[in-house]
Design a binder for these strands. Structure first.
Lengths: 344, 344
DNA sequence: TTGAAAGCGATACCAA
DNA sequence: TTGGTATCGCTTTCAA
């Protein structure tokens, strides 16, 4: 916190009041449109506000009123992942419409970074917090409870959240994909993902996927977890690694569409045909899918809506409206054409 | 600003002080590590801080000290554009390392939204502002001047910024691309872009591009400006529109790589070969380029570094270090293989 | 090394 | 319809 220059000192409410020849209480009422003043007084005060270029100091407002601020802290793992950028956009746009400001926290998938950020952001008396993921450090959980502030946990559907939660069931997501691919006749499946996995959601999808595949007498015979972010290049490179071994897989399921697209490019570059030689399935149904010659087999998740819903739940909590403890925004499978269709 | 629940009231500094049997001034000194207290006092106070789970109220700190906060307002046009997500990530990560918090403002490319946001964010006494683009409404400019706060304008290189600026010269960017394509032997060029154009940067690139093309006896014979965001689909669709007419173009320059990729998919889907039948050039060198079979002819701009540099300049301004008025982070042409090479 | 008192800019509460 | 006064949590300033 740097010292403010003393020159160019800001105009305060009492200066406006003095200029208008009224008390600062009257000026305060006018500015809040609270009523209880004459039209002439209102006009006079507003005129002085304009003349002096008065900007309220909301720090003082919050402070005086023992209110919380209009800040909403939003933690996001990483913006390199297009999905989270969409979620953030959905949140901020909705919150902005209702006079709230997003205080961003990029946690880079670590609880340590999240904890640091939570501590700081709570010290600014935020109206509420929207957190990506359901797992927080013990100290973070303590602070959050003590802060007694509305919290929306997003991403992973969480039936017993700290406060409220919105997301999808990642196990089911993986399960449905597994069942679908088995139904298409695949038995030897592969998986490529990364360790940058918020709330263990991708790992949970893999669990569901594996369960479904094995239930259908298939195997997830090869799986790879790279220590990197989930992006085009890791998908490309991960596929190269996965296919380098001896055992062959018939179809690969990826952590997300970006990785799946990278994988697709790799196998095509090797002269393999898709889905003739190998099937490719992604997750997330990213925008790029709209221009590809083959529709990517994927799972559609309404990311922007997830963000908006999170913001709506926060707004409802802030105005003490009833809010469901947890809200499932759902997903649906995109059959696509990067896996072969069922034989039957 | 919603009423805080009275129950679960927060612990204040004086409660800590009382518990430790010292005055709140002493407790305050300990917490700021300001010195001027005995080790035993320090230990005692810190113990009580832990016991009570005290979290400082930084609103009060800023308020009392007549300081500015550790907030930095960051305005970004739109996170659907991967480029801006990268810039934001670069900014927030760097700022976070130095104890600052990003207050996000998505302006959706409009000065009106930016003005509203500036007004609000200034009322929170931010340490500084990072704004995308050089054009602001008259009222916004007024408020910014009155606020007397460090400002970094990014994106468009601006030799006479409000305060400081970092970015690239978009005219030169377009000019270089134009010269390169003319040098490759193209004479009939097309352009596909959108009206969602922060700081007129894309329009400026088109100006530079046109100038270079005409200087080389070529023509930008067809150009299209869609009223939408620059993304994969608008690139696809825009290309369809552009090619629907009678006049043919030999090579298309796009507002960015996402559009160029969409355009590439369109022409491939029509059985055209690239660069055999038509050349494709983008801008921005997005990550997806790393996995494509053909390297996209594009312009590399270090987006993440742009964000980091903006944050560094802000930090320097905040600690009163000398800062250049404007900083060019440069770009370079990626020849790629989606345009044909020069004949010579 | 410590503490008491004033004050930051607004609002709440009570009086007029 | 208005205004005076106490107050929020902390830091600054001055005194001990």
């Amino acid at each position: 916190m740097s010292e403010k220059k003393n020159k160019n000192k800001k105009i305060s409410l009492s200066e406006v009041a003095t200029a208008a020849g009224v008390s600062k209480m009257t000026a305060s009422r006018v500015l809040r449109g609270e009523g209880g003043y004459s039209e002439s007084t209102r006009a006079l005060v507003m005129q002085k506000v304009d003349e002096l270029g008065y900007l309220p100091n909301r720090l003082a407002t919050v402070f005086a009123g023992d209110k919380s601020s209009t800040f909403v802290g939003v933690s996001i793992p990483d913006l390199g992942n297009e999905v989270f950028a969409q979620v953030l956009e959905g949140i901020d746009r909705k919150l902005g419409l209702f006079g709230h400001q997003t205080v961003l926290g990029l946690t880079q998938h670590t609880q340590k970074a999240e904890e640091e950020w939570i501590k700081t952001v709570l010290s600014w008396q935020p109206a509420g917090l929207i957190l990506t993921g359901r797992y927080h450090s013990a100290r973070a959980t303590e602070m959050l409870k003590a802060a007694n502030v509305p919290i929306v946990e997003i991403w992973d559907l969480n039936s017993s959240p700290m406060d409220t939660s919105v997301g999808i069931n990642h196990f089911d997501c993986g399960f449905d994909m597994g069942r679908y691919l088995v139904g298409c006749g695949y038995r030897e499946l592969g998986y490529v993902g990364t360790s940058h996995d918020t709330a263990n959601a991708a790992a949970t999808r893999l669990d569901g996927f594996t369960r479904a595949v094995e239930g259908g007498n298939g195997h997830v015979s090869k799986q790879l977890c790279l220590h990197d972010t989930a992006n085009y290049y890791t998908g490309y490179y991960g596929t190269e690694q996965l296919l380098a071994g001896t055992k062959s897989v018939e179809c690969i399921f990826y952590q997300n569409d970006a990785m799946a697209f990278g994988g697709l490019q790799f196998v095509l570059s090797k002269g393999m045909s898709v889905p003739g030689d190998i099937g490719i399935a992604g997750w997330g149904d990213l925008p790029i899918a709209s221009v590809l010659p083959k529709r990517m087999t994927s799972m559609h998740v309404p990311h922007l809506k997830l963000g908006q819903t999170a913001a709506e739940m926060m707004l409802a909590r802030l105005s003490d409206e009833p809010v469901p403890v947890c809200k499932d925004i759902g997903f649906h499978l995109i059959p696509g054409t990067t896996v072969r269709r069922a034989d039957n």
